[in-house]
Amino acid sequence: MKRKLLSIAAALCFIAGAKAQTSYGLKAGANFAKFQVSGGNTSYTSDAATFFYVTGYADVPVAMNFSVQPGISLQGKGGKAPAGDFTEVSTKDNLMYIEVPVNFVYYVPTGEAGKVFFGAGPYAAIGIHAKSTQGNLSESGSFSDAGLKAFDAGLNFLAGFKLTNGFLINGGYGLGLTNMLKDIDGVTSKNRVFSVGVGYQF
């Protein structure tokens, strides 16, 4: 019985310690987003369109220099194509998602200046707004109206530098694994997003 009580007490102390060490952060920056379209034996990658992202997250230490970072994010994705690729006028698709990432992050101390960090993890997202622009004409609506699936999922990769005062500089890449197109057999379109930004971890 004493051993069980000691084990429970040790577990509670560990949980309390982990909770005390948990910190929270906010990141924002620019997304350079593309579509990768594949069909048959051909593949096409759109030009990059610039959007924004804002992410709030928790940094939960699970081992020395290693943390899990669950979060919630507003992500602008999409892509653009110049006139002549598919239509007579230039096109741009602006897709807004609410995304839930879970990243696994490893920190490399670099002395008094701060830490370099690397990470990766899965994400799931729901599209909340779609806007398509062709030439001077724009149309906004739901993902379904645009012929797209609202659900997206994939992998995130990130790296950056965190200063000792909590300020951080980061870059990342989002690799979409879900086909966005509805009712088009033999053709897939997936999100590809490179991002840069700054943030602060409290």
Results as ranks from 00 to 15, higher is better:
90 S>R: 04
51 F>S: 06
82 P>R: 06
110 T>R: 07
124 A>G: 14
103 N>W: 01
44 Y>C: 03
188 T>V: 03
195 S>D: 08
137 L>T: 15
124 A>I: 15
137 L>I: 13
156 N>L: 08
6 L>E: 14
147 G>Y: 11
54 V>T: 13
197 G>Q: 09
116 V>C: 08
82 P>Y: 05
110 T>A: 15
96 M>R: 14
17 G>N: 12
62 V>R: 11
116 V>Q: 02
145 D>P: 00
12 L>F: 07
123 Y>K: 09
71 G>E: 14
37 V>H: 02
41 N>W: 00
86 F>M: 04
172 G>I: 08
196 V>I: 15
71 G>T: 13
135 G>L: 08
53 Y>H: 15
170 N>H: 14
144 S>Y: 08
26 L>G: 05
42 T>Y: 12
111 G>A: 07
64 M>S: 13
173 Y>C: 11
7 S>T: 10
46 S>G: 02
79 G>N: 12
127 G>K: 04
167 F>V: 15
59 D>N: 14
193 V>P: 03
170 N>L: 13
129 H>Q: 12
113 A>Y: 11
76 G>K: 03
195 S>K: 13
99 E>D: 13
154 G>R: 11
161 F>V: 07
5 L>G: 01
124 A>H: 00
127 G>N: 10
122 P>K: 09
47 D>W: 02
112 E>A: 13
34 K>C: 02
120 A>L: 14
165 N>C: 09
139 E>S: 14
112 E>S: 14
123 Y>C: 02
12 L>G: 02
32 F>W: 07
82 P>L: 05
